[in-house]
Simulated assay, not measured.
Amino acid sequence: MTMAPGVLREAAVDVDAITENVRHLRALTGSEIIAVVKAAGYGHGAHRAAVAALRGGATRIGVSDIDEALALRRAGITAPLFAWLHAPGASFAEAVREEIELGISDIDQLLRAAEAAHGEQSAAVHLKIETGLSRNGIAPADWRTVFSEAARLERIGRLRVVGLFSHLSNTSEADDRAALARFEEGVVLAASVGLTPPLRHIAATNAAIALPEARLGCVRIGIGLYGISPFGDRSSADLGLRPAMTLRGAVAAVRRVPAGTGVSYGYDYRTERETMLALIPLGYADGVPRQASGRGPVSINGRRFRVAGRIAMDQFVVDVGDHPVAVGDEAVLFGDPTLGVPSARDWADAADTIDYEIVTRVGARVPRREVRA
């Protein structure tokens, strides 16, 4: 898997890795998989990630908002699509017409979903129960009112309640178990007013792996889809996952410089001796975090270096010493660490962030190239 001649920068996306990650997590959890491809598939490409996940056995595709769902539907995804974050007052008419399942967090959204039903086509909804994350979701004080109204609307054919769901904080097992207990209280209350939807889901990748009682027969897999571990103390390989994205660029220039040469803006880095500098054509416009200046790792010709000086908008510099590096050589910022290259987590550590952000922030001008293992 090498770069083609003439390519300046690219993110290679191994779609087979996504498929295999889904198969592995299905087997591990014994659960239905909702594959989450929001935010352009965490930077990997929403459509390609959805196709690969469905090939691996996912049964639903989850996204953040309706526009993301509609784009997938128009691109040919026929599987159930689920979107849960909505603009205030937004119409649900097109979403219902395109059979997008809607996450519902309050009575207003519930009523607007019912209004969007037309003819014999009812609105399919998942009711989100607030269980302690303090984001959106039906507040406990409103559970009975919303559940009762949803049951009434379902009886008259305006709604189909497909699922009840919530989201965990992953703060600790104790916190997540407390949230799960609150969720079960909501499920019992919903059943008491006649709501017994086929799906219940509260676990994302973290809890799907680490908290078996939270699986409930259906889990939402986001970061695990792309082969990245949600745990600080366990790697992707530890979990049987394979990272799908490799971010790389072609060395654009090399130059021999004397000791004391300043590098990049502000001269935060000066060479300690005569050395070779290599220019890598990726910068913060491409999602390379400027916070990793002086620390971000790069692999060139099987040897690891780090960014020298500040990361600029379009480029950064690596001090390669006396190692043989030439224009056109491949510089890998991150990929599958079992292949000897840095990981997204290495960059996250260098930038004091999380690897979720590292892959998701890869910029639009970086071409995505689909590859197969």
Rank of each mutant, 00 (worst) to 15 (best):
A191M: 03
Y267W: 14
I107N: 12
L168A: 00
V254G: 05
L279Y: 03
F165E: 10
Q291W: 06
V146A: 00
I358T: 07
E149D: 12
V359S: 09
A191I: 02
A95F: 00
D65N: 15
V307K: 02
R256N: 13
G76C: 07
M245V: 12
E101H: 09
S134R: 07
E185L: 14
R310K: 12
G328Y: 08
V193E: 09
A58N: 08
S64Y: 15
I129G: 06
A308K: 05
Y356G: 05
V193M: 03
T145H: 12
I18K: 00
A50W: 09
I66E: 08
S148N: 09
A150R: 06
E357I: 14
V320H: 05
L168S: 00
G186C: 05
Y42E: 05
G302Q: 00
A331E: 05
L211C: 04
A350E: 06
L211S: 02
I311Q: 04
L111Y: 13
V193D: 10
L28C: 03
A179W: 02
A191F: 08
S31P: 04
V51H: 08
A52Y: 06
G137K: 02
S169H: 09
L279R: 07
E357A: 15
I354R: 12
S235L: 13
A27C: 03
S122A: 15
S192C: 09
R304K: 07
L247E: 07
L195W: 08
L110N: 10
A71W: 07
I107Y: 14
L159I: 07
P324S: 08
Y226C: 10
I104W: 11
I33Q: 03
P140V: 08
A116K: 10
G240H: 04
V327I: 11
V187W: 04
V219G: 04
A308C: 05
R26K: 13
E98A: 09
A331K: 00
Y42D: 08
V359P: 02
R290P: 06
R270V: 15
Y269D: 09
